[in-house]
Structure formats: structure tokens, C-alpha cells
């Protein structure tokens, strides 16, 4: 055994891209690309986002342009999805409403996930009494069906888009808290966390620099699936008249308005409904795909 230490691999033969962070992201991207569902869902959502940003400037009508003479007109070349009971163009309204729908979904989940992840990571890391208090609180929230809880919160806060976002966010907190707590429990036992403690790292450094990045995969998957649920809940609340107020082109509200004409003019309710289905389906497909791709058991 020689005292000399040699490096094991040879610098000449090793090919190395300049940025390893980028390489890591690229690997993750590669894995995601292997899942057809994730790609399909991702492209659809990208398409929806672009439509919500660009669409309102391209559609022929504003969302509140009324044309009472042509009210409840069936789909035609002029009004692709027909018109509603005020003669407003449904196609234009759906495109205008895309932003509201996606916005509520993203905002509610961003808010709910932030709070939920914070609760979960603290609960899992510290354990003991803090854990018991937080998790029992989450159990209480979880005991109510999500939509019912949101309904109760909105009826307390009053009906508006912002309150719907808050309500849906609150009802999505416990799911995140539970998932993150579970992952934190397994990650905090690993030796690299002990190594950070031995180095004298602060709790916040350990929590946010070392545990959070290593529990991010289930968070991402859950967030995607939660957006779909959030969109349904938000539309549901608007359908009940507790969310977006007229003349806002919110899809749930449009659906609600259309239900009065289901026999005479079914297209008024049909197209907003289909739009909700399409967006929710896209998020579900992406979520399932991501779950397959990011599952740690499926390392290539």
C-alpha cells in the first residue's frame, strides 16, 4: 500500500459540461420527457397559458359586448361557440376566462402549498408537541370535504375571486402538510443532515437548504394535481354564485348562467363545461406523468 494518493479518474478523458446544475436539470427533464403523459399534459398546459396571455387580444369580441338581437344564437361561423342570453360571444368569453381559471388555480395552490409545506417540514423536523398540534389541526381541516370547507370559508369571507383563492388555498393546505411531513421524516434521518448539524448549521439552513430540495419531487407532483382540484373547486364556488361576479367570464359562472337554457340552447352551458374539463384533464395528465417520471423507485 503506497502512501501516495492518486485521483481515480483522468482529467484528460473526462468530458464535462460547464454547468452541473444545468446538467442536473437536464437529467430531470430527460426523465420527464420519457413519460408521454407528462409531455402531453405539459404541452397542453403551455398552450392554455399562451392562449390566456395572447388570446384576449386576438378574439373578435370583448367579454361584455352585448348583442341582444342575437341572443342565444347557436354556433355559427360568426360566433364559433354561439352566444349567451345577453348575446355575448361565448368563444371570446371562454378565452377571456382562461386567465381567470388558470390564475385562480395557480394562486390558490401556490398559497396553499407554501403554507402546507412550511407546516409539514416543521412538523416532520421538530416532531414532538409541535408535530402533534400541527397534524391534529391538519386532521381537522382534512375531515371536511375540500369543496365543503371552501364553501364554508367563502360564505364567511364573502363572495369574490380573491376570497375563493383563499378558501381553496386553505382547503389544500393539509394535503401538502402530510406529504411533506412524511418525506421530511425520512430525509431528516439521513447522515448528511447529521453532518450539517455536526458542522453547526442553523435549523433554517438545514430545513430549507438541505431538506426542502430533497423532498421537492412529491411537492411538485402534488401541486400539479392540486391545481386541477383547485380549478374545479373555484369553478364550483363561482357556479354557486359565491366566486366571480357577473359580468366576469369565469367558466363556473358561465356554466351556472347556461343551466337555465339547457333545453333551448345547450351550447351556452356545454362550452364552458368542456373548457373546464379540458384544463382539469391536462393538469391531471401532467400530474400523473410527473409522478411516474419523478418516482424515486424508477431511477434509470
Amino acid at each position: 500500500m503506497s502512501e501516495q494518493i492518486q485521483t481515480i479518474d483522468n482529467p484528460q478523458t473526462s468530458i464535462k459540461p460547464p454547468n452541473p446544475r444545468f446538467q442536473n436539470a437536464k437529467n430531470t427533464f430527460k426523465k420527464i420527457r420519457k413519460s408521454r403523459n407528462a409531455v402531453l399534459g405539459g404541452l397542453l398546459i403551455l398552450f392554455f397559458i399562451i392562449v390566456s396571455l395572447v388570446g384576449p387580444h386576438l378574439v373578435p369580441y370583448d367579454y361584455d359586448t352585448q348583442d341582444v338581437v342575437n341572443k342565444l344564437a347557436p354556433p355559427s361561423s360568426e360566433h364559433w361557440f354561439g352566444t349567451d342570453h345577453f348575446g355575448r360571444d361565448i368563444f371570446s368569453r371562454i378565452i377571456h376566462g382562461m386567465g381567470i381559471t388558470l390564475g385562480t388555480g395557480f394562486a390558490a395552490v401556490a398559497l396553499g402549498a407554501t403554507v402546507g409545506v412550511l407546516f409539514g417540514i416543521i412538523s416532520g423536523y421538530y416532531g414532538g408537541k409541535i408535530d402533534t398540534v400541527i397534524m391534529r389541526l391538519m386532521d381537522i381541516l382534512l375531515a371536511f370535504p375540500g369543496i365543503l370547507l371552501a364553501l364554508a370559508i367563502v360564505s364567511i369571507l364573502g363572495g369574490s375571486i380573491i376570497n375563493v383563492i383563499i378558501a381553496v388555498a386553505i382547503s389544500s393546505i393539509p394535503v401538502f402538510a402530510r406529504i411533506v411531513r412524511g418525506s421530511t421524516l425520512s430525509v431528516k434521518k439521513l447522515e448528511y443532515i447529521d453532518a450539517q448539524k455536526a458542522l453547526g448549521a442553523s435549523d433554517s439552513r438545514i430545513l430549507f437548504k438541505h431538506i426542502l430540495p430533497n423532498v421537492s419531487s412529491p411537492i411538485i407532483v402534488q401541486a400539479t394535481l392540486s391545481i386541477a382540484i383547485a380549478i374545479i373547486s373555484a369553478s364550483g364556488l363561482s357556479f354557486l354564485g359565491l366566486g366571480a361576479q357577473p359580468p366576469s367570464p369565469e367558466w363556473g359562472a358561465m356554466l351556472s348562467a347556461g343551466r337555465n337554457y339547457l333545453y333551448s340552447a345547450p351550447h351556452v352551458a356545454l362550452f364552458p363545461g368542456l373548457a373546464i374539463v379540458a384544463v382539469v384533464l391536462a393538469f391531471n395528465v401532467l400530474g400523473d406523468g410527473l409522478r411516474d417520471a419523478l418516482d424515486p423507485k424508477m431511477k434509470d
Binding site: E191, D194, G200, S202, P213
Partner: peptide, 22 residues
């Protein structure tokens, strides 16, 4: 104690679990 930790360090058993993979 955290200040004092620079004087004493630990090397762990499992090289796969003892460094942050990210």
C-alpha cells in the same frame, strides 16, 4: 456549541447517505 463544532467533526459510515445528493 455550534461555534465549538469547528473543533470536532465526524465522518460517517455510508458514503451514499452522508452527502447531500443535490
Amino acid at each position: 456549541m455550534n461555534k465549538e463544532r469547528k473543533n470536532m467533526q465526524i465522518i460517517f459510515q455510508d458514503p451514499y447517505a452522508s452527502i447531500n445528493p443535490r
